[in-house]
Computed example of a mutant assay.
Amino acid sequence: MKINWGTGIVIAFGLFMTFILFFVFTVQSDSKYDNELVVEEYYKHDAHFAEEMTRIQNAADLAQRPIINNNANGIEVEFPKTFETNKIKGKVSLYRPSNKKLDFEIPISLSNATTLLIPKKSLAGGRWDINMEWQYNGKSYLSKETVYVR
């Protein structure tokens, strides 16, 4: 049986459509390819964007800022030694872009030390976005950073 060029184009087009439909079905049904929103309530979050920018600017205006270090023990958040640790309140949110189930928050609770340690055993390897929301002397701050854990 001889196939002319018109039949060949139709067959190729049909195979291509089958491949695309298979790919779309696989991505939509497999839990490995989870399509999640970055923020659950996007519009509510967007309404507070100006406040968030003010807190980011407050953090940028500090003469000495908290430093986020990634070392062998885990992630360390080191506040400047000039801060009174009992006046620092807030939380550190760790966001994993690839898997929402790994996201978690840690309250900032410092005793006499100026360093908060997030142990490596609670962190999977890969990219982590860290949002640190904190208050000191009645002023709100927000620090954002991306860390890669190995």
Rank of each mutant, 00 (worst) to 15 (best):
L117F: 09
S140A: 15
I118G: 04
N131V: 02
M132P: 01
I118N: 06
I118M: 10
T114H: 15
E133H: 14
D103K: 14
D129Y: 08
W134N: 04
G126D: 05
T114P: 04
I108A: 09
G125M: 08
I108W: 07
L102K: 14
N112L: 08
F104K: 12
G138A: 07
S111F: 05
K139A: 02
L123G: 04
L117N: 14
T114S: 12
W134Y: 15
K121S: 13
G138I: 00
K121I: 09
G138E: 05
S122C: 01
R127C: 01
K121N: 14
G138K: 13
W134G: 01
K120Q: 12
F104L: 07
P107S: 11
E133V: 06
M132K: 06
T114L: 03
G138H: 01
Y141W: 04
K139G: 00
S122F: 07
I106K: 15
P119T: 04
I106A: 12
S109Y: 09
I118F: 10
E105I: 09
F104I: 07
N131F: 12
N137W: 03
S111G: 05
W128S: 09
N131M: 09
L123N: 10
T114G: 09
K120S: 11
G125D: 14
G125E: 13
P107N: 08
T115G: 01
S122Y: 05
S140I: 04
A113V: 06
T114A: 11
F104Q: 11
G126S: 02
N112K: 14
T115N: 11
G125A: 15
R127Y: 06
D103C: 10
N112I: 05
I106D: 04
P119N: 11
G126R: 10
I108G: 06
K120C: 03
G125V: 03
N112G: 14
I118W: 01
S122I: 14
A113K: 15
A124W: 08
S109W: 05
P119Y: 08
K120V: 09
L110T: 07
W134R: 00
A124P: 00
K120W: 03
S122E: 12
L123M: 10
T115Q: 09
A124Q: 12
L117E: 11
P119L: 05
N137Y: 07
G126A: 05
P107V: 06
N137A: 13
S140W: 02
G138W: 01
K139T: 08
N131E: 12
S122R: 15
N131A: 13
S122N: 11
W128I: 03
E133C: 02
S140P: 00
L116M: 12
A113P: 01
L123Q: 07
F104T: 05
L102S: 05
P107F: 05
Q135W: 03
G138Q: 10
D129R: 13
S122P: 00
I130C: 09
S109I: 11
E105Y: 07
L110I: 04
E133L: 11
I106W: 00
